[in-house]
Amino acid sequence: MSTQPHKKRTRWHIAVFLAPAVLVYTAIMILPLFGTMQNSLFNEIDKSRVFVGLQNFYKLFQDPRWSADFWNALGNNAWFFLIHMLVQNPIGIALAAILSNPRLRFAKFYRTAIFIPTILSFVIVGFAWKLILSPIWGITPSMLDAVGLKFLFAPWLGKEEYALTTIALISVWQFIGIPMMLIFAALLSIPDDVLEAAECDGITGMSAFWKIKLPLILPSIGIISVLTFVGNFNAFDLIYTIQGALAGPDFSTDILGTFMYRTFFGFQLQLGDPYMGSTIASAMFGIILVGVCIYLFAIQTRLRRYQF
């Protein structure tokens, strides 16, 4: 016994140091998550809480009205995500590539200016853009008028066909700093020897970006895609501040977050339904989980990593 005293001793300090984070995270994240999932298996029948199994999910996917709302929200959410992937991330990468050019002047100023919207509150961004685009007081109509393009103006936020895209682009404007910063950091970490070696082989300028830098930052782009995916499918704030809980016009900007909020807390005369609300929240969790798993197992494992 006394020959191996060290191996037997419990290393309490690990538990002690981990405890605060574990406790806080459990209390405010894990417990509510499981509480919500549990709630989605119950419903109120005759004023008492009754276990109903997967009936709520059945209702959400099979009831014509619930499923129409759900698929509408999911479709809108997918479009919201697609706009971010097609606009935010490529522009973010391009900005980072330009900013990492050592010959660019005022690079720090641009970097800060582009990043600032990201730290603004959703409420400020929402109201500022609502005013900018307002057909009555906004500066957009007069600015377009000044360059003779007034005919291009429409009350974008009020039209079913444009509203969601408009809000997605506002969100892109707000968050473009995140991919830019992450890619910028990734580009800085590429050692100069690699680029110099490439230069000796005659690869410079644009082809250096496509052939050397881009493959090296692919893992970062993957991370950004996952962050965008999780962020978009959890989104709620911007739509709520711009269009309210009804996500108008005619639910054309309704995404899973606003759909869940409206169901859970109720709206105007509609009474809140915590059980169906939890069901939607659980479905959102499932969607995000599946999306992240696809990335982790199907994409990330195939990415080639380079060690320097």
Binding site: P135, P155, G158, K159
Partner: peptide, 16 residues
């Protein structure tokens, strides 16, 4: 209603 009433909010109408 005014031009672009589709995007006109309640406070907009009050102010108008």
């Amino acid at each position: 209603l005014g031009d672009g009433y589709e995007a006109q909010t309640y406070p907009d109408s009050q102010n108008l």
